[in-house]
Design a protein around this nucleic acid. Structure first.
Lengths: 334, 334
DNA sequence: CTGAAAGCGCTAACAA
DNA sequence: TTGTTAGCGCTTTCAG
């Protein structure tokens, strides 16, 4: 068994309160007794039991991070940002990985309840009204990253605007036959693809380019499915000269297909993605960078702030979007 | 403030012990009182405080996972495996992400000490003798994944054998000018590249192929650095006809360079990687699959076992290796 | 500056 | 079957 505060107190011939004071750097201890305590601690190789401390103080120094199974690079990148920011704090992170809606709802409920964690960070999982209400009422500060609810603090991206930027970029290059390839829009677990699609439509409209329904394709997520969808798009009688993909992984899937079909990018086909994951850099993919890493860091910052003093109205932070032009888009020739 | 067990007891007109019994499904409670307690719990919306429970039982139902910053896909994949297995248990996971040796040593020390976690999982971070000794002595069961120490439980890969398999595969295809590209071997944070290199050497020797020092290149990790190293290798007077990369990311870097130099893979150059990350599949890369996901799952299984009953001698599990032949290797022609 | 003592909310003997 | 009580190891009043 590990030594307790009582063992230290006995050894140093002081009361346990004094030991506690020394541990917590409470100033009201004479240099003499402090030293006695410190040597006792040293000799016993004592460390305070964090659980006991937690029960006593009511703080766990832990924040819970609820995140979709690490299936997408963007979650991982956000998580890295969370880690980065958390590393500089005194908090630890418990990872709650959700694989399905049931998990999600359970975690949402559990964590907001009892004092397992001091704060909650939710990544890319929008809560419904009832859940948001619950979080708002709870004693546990909660911050959403890449999700929005008016009742809660959040760090977000303007997906509509991003979609618009991407599409506008293609239009600026002279493209008018612009495809849109994304995850299913109909029943969105997370609505970002839908918003990006709205941005796409908006840009077309603003530039008086008629929307062609056949240029839009949606389906299951992932690089493989994107390849397949790209094949369909590119097999059309009059295929698009540029494609905006709902995310970078799908954009890379399009590049795969283009190579397979010997369609040269960017001379014959322009492709733009969305997210700004690392693979986009490696692939030389033009994309809309939504600063994933930063979103994690900002989420933590916001949460730490809430932890210090609960704000009365939920803070909201919009991250900037940046068009990163690389080598998969270029002016339409002819 | 949340209701406590005492509030429930009062409301149900029973003692707190009875409430505790109901909570913990202890059978010795009459159906009648049980119901009374349950309705009281319902009405108060009570949940037991986990921290108090932890202090009382000595169990935290938490396992600590120490892992290098999620810089490499292989760590992430292992982590996914850990999550998968942990999801079926009653344990949660605290993620300790180490960015440098100091972090690592701190976490090693902290976690093995006090009862913050019930068990420890260490991914790809070999402890030194003193640290291993510490873990072995500690009350906290510890399992290494992708790392070995005789004193500790571990789930491992035979990197030497894997290196041999990869090289032998190339030899079987008729290659004799076989390059080896990897991370720095000299001061390995983790020795896997070195072991794989040993396997490479072994295969050459066994097949009476003289080792050519100029065909070996090592440097910083990452796809970009691999590209650069590949350029050097391929710019030689007599370049290798096949390259074995220390890991899949580096192999993909080689493919990047090959494309850049218009060297066709696999007709002009064969490339084999190591790990079996998802990108290998997407890239159609031939590789040695070391079952990363499974390593995480097995690590958890082993740890859960230890949690039930500490084994007297450290369990060790070697994962199988599998050559996955895809489209980046083929017989040497001419 | 220091110690005694009362909790934090729960579990688990021990009695009844 | 149930209630009382003594901890778990710490922090924090409250006296002194």
């Amino acid at each position: 068994m590990s030594p307790t505060i009582r063992d230290v107190a006995k050894k140093a011939n002081v009361g346990i309160a004094t030991v506690s004071r020394v541990i917590n750097n409470n100033t009201s201890v004479s240099a003499e007794t402090r030293n006695a305590v410190l040597t006792a601690i040293e000799e016993l190789d004592y460390t305070p039991n964090p659980i006991a401390r937690q029960l006593s103080t009511g703080r766990t120094l832990t924040i819970g991070v609820i995140v979709p199974n690490l299936t997408s690079p963007s979650y991982v990148e956000r998580l890295r940002g969370v880690q980065t920011a958390l590393a500089e704090s005194e908090y630890h992170m418990v990872l709650y990985s959700v694989g399905n809606p049931v998990d999600r709802d359970n975690y949402f409920k559990e964590l907001s309840r009892n004092g397992l964690v001091d704060g909650i960070l939710i990544i890319s999982l929008p809560p419904n009204d009832a859940q948001a209400e619950r979080f708002a009422q709870s004693d546990v500060p909660t911050v959403l990253i890449d999700a929005y609810h008016e009742q809660l603090c959040s760090v977000l991206t303007d997906d509509v605007k991003g979609g618009e930027m991407a599409t506008q970029h293609l239009i600026d290059l002279g493209h008018t036959k612009i495809g849109f390839l994304s995850e299913t829009l109909e029943t969105p677990f997370h609505p970002s693809s839908y918003y990006r699609y709205q941005g796409y439509r908006k840009a077309l409209t603003e530039n008086n380019i008629p929307f062609d329904e056949t240029y839009r394709i949606s389906g299951a997520s992932g690089r493989m499915h994107a390849r397949e969808m790209a094949r369909q798009l590119l097999a059309m009688q009059i295929p698009p000269s540029a494609i905006f993909a709902g995310n970078d992984i799908q954009a890379i899937g399009i590049l795969d297909t283009a190579r397979e079909l010997q369609i040269e990018v960017p001379s014959e086909l322009s492709v733009i993605g969305f997210d700004g994951i690392r693979d986009a850099e490696y692939t030389n993919l033009t994309t809309i960078d939504q600063h994933l890493h930063e979103s994690g860091e900002e989420g933590v910052k916001m949460l730490l702030q809430e932890l210090e003093s609960l704000s009365d109205s939920p803070a909201q932070k919009r991250l900037a979007l940046k068009l990163v032009q690389r080598n998969t888009t270029r002016p339409l020739i002819g």
